[in-house]
Design a protein around this nucleic acid. Structure first.
Lengths: 237, 237
DNA sequence: GGTGCCAAGATTGTCGACAATTTGAGAAAG
DNA sequence: CTTTCTCAAATTGTCGACAATCTTGGCACC
């Protein structure tokens, strides 16, 4: 029972950084380029020049090419044969598409979590929420909770589904794109307290082993989140 | 209005062969290797030797490596840094995981299809089912319907959702793995007529624009299909 | 003046060779 | 006889160069 407290620590790092250990050069370029795209350092829709980026990151073109392949698998860049590679464009239509898929999959994750999570895992999430609640009261207005805390909550639910395929699909392939929308839309909004209540309702449903309710609550929660981003989109025009 | 009949032709080829046009060498190797894996020409769980396969397909190792990357994105091979590449192992646990995801996503597709499909598209699917019904009566017992017909039906529903992200996720990433299970488990069973009735009920719900019912029916339909494969698995031991 | 074709430049696709890492067998020590 | 260390063979990761394809600017022709 050494290091018991480790289960209470943040898991968001792993969710933001899926690679368990970044060893190879392709990994490094992939992770760094992904960060740059998600955080907007390289503009959405812009074309990517292989020789230029290879030079900037100090690797061969073949290596960078490999990294681009992985980014394509994450839906962060789009490729055409003999033409090139562009960063994806963030359109409202695509936002809706992605969030429809996300709501469906995380709804499933929630239902499975209600069946498969251990009592200890559930207790840890509740403790996490209480911790976030306190921190939120202290630093009201700052975006701490929204970013790390929200990621952490969803990450644990998805992991709690005990469905590895679902986990990979959401964490590796979908979440970077979702993060890209949130970051570039400046999602530091006042949805904090409301989202907190929704999280609480979800974990309560899971604790009661009510998978059906948990699924529905999660779908709604994600739907609200989508509307929030969509409004920002429309306001930005 | 030329070539109107083209909408009634089979769309399964496209679903089996997602690449619109296979031009580059990497594409060719990717498609051929994928076929070999799905159809069991290379055994599940077996290790893949890069130099050997590169020589067999007459391409460079870098090219084959690129193809392996894409196979990894389809979840058909698994990779570890500095260790190598193995074909995925078909376990009952993974079957359940994949089918849980599939049921959720195709349920979503069905709901969206009920909202977004045109009357003409719906009519075309109904015509398709009738065509399959006739052919099924003639060649009873053969596996035609199960393979091509079933793929065709699901393909059109997914496309009818008008959600491109969902389409790519299902057709590119998930369906090859599903096909792998079905082919290697020898899925030519007697589920034909029952599946036909289920398909009919689904398209009727879509025609009535009852998305909720269509989603539920599709989830059940896929659940039955999973049980069918799962039984084969247990019987094979 | 507008349209279509051609060539030069640039970009992507492919290759063979070299460097780094893992793995397995064999020898030496316990 | 078992265990551990070492080293070599094999496999994977990375690189720079060459070939094929697309783009673009200009010129000829209508």
């Amino acid at each position: 029972m050494i290091n018991q407290s480790v289960t209470n620590e943040s898991a968001a790092n792993e969710s933001i950084e899926p690679q368990n250990q970044v060893t190879t050069a392709v990994d490094q370029v992939f992770v760094e380029l992904r960060r740059a795209i998600v955080e907007g350092d390289v503009a959405q829709g812009s074309k990517i020049s292989e020789p230029e980026l290879a030079k900037r990151y100090g690797v061969s073109r073949a290596t960078l090419r490999d990294a681009l392949n992985r980014l394509e698998a994450c839906n962060l860049v789009e490729r055409k044969a003999n033409v090139g590679c562009r960063v994806v464009a963030l359109t409202p239509e695509r936002l809706i598409e992605v969030y429809q898929v996300r709501a469906s999959l995380e709804g499933l994750a929630c239902r499975l979590a209600a069946e498969n999570m251990t009592d200890e895992e559930i207790a840890n999430i509740k403790a996490l929420l209480n911790k976030h609640l306190n921190e939120q009261r202290v630093k009201e207005g700052e975006s701490y909770y929204q970013e790390a805390g929200d990621l952490d909550f969803h990450y644990r639910i998805i992991k709690g589904s005990k469905n590895e395929h679902l986990f990979n699909l959401l964490i590796h392939d979908l979440y970077q794109l979702i993060r890209m929308y949130r970051v570039q839309m400046g999602m530091t909004g006042p949805r904090v307290s409301k989202a907190f209540d929704e999280h609480l309702a979800i974990i309560n449903a899971i604790e009661n082993r009510d998978g059906e309710l948990a699924e529905m609550l999660m779908k709604r929660h994600i739907g609200y989140s989508m509307n929030n981003i969509e409004n920002k989109f429309n306001a930005a025009q």
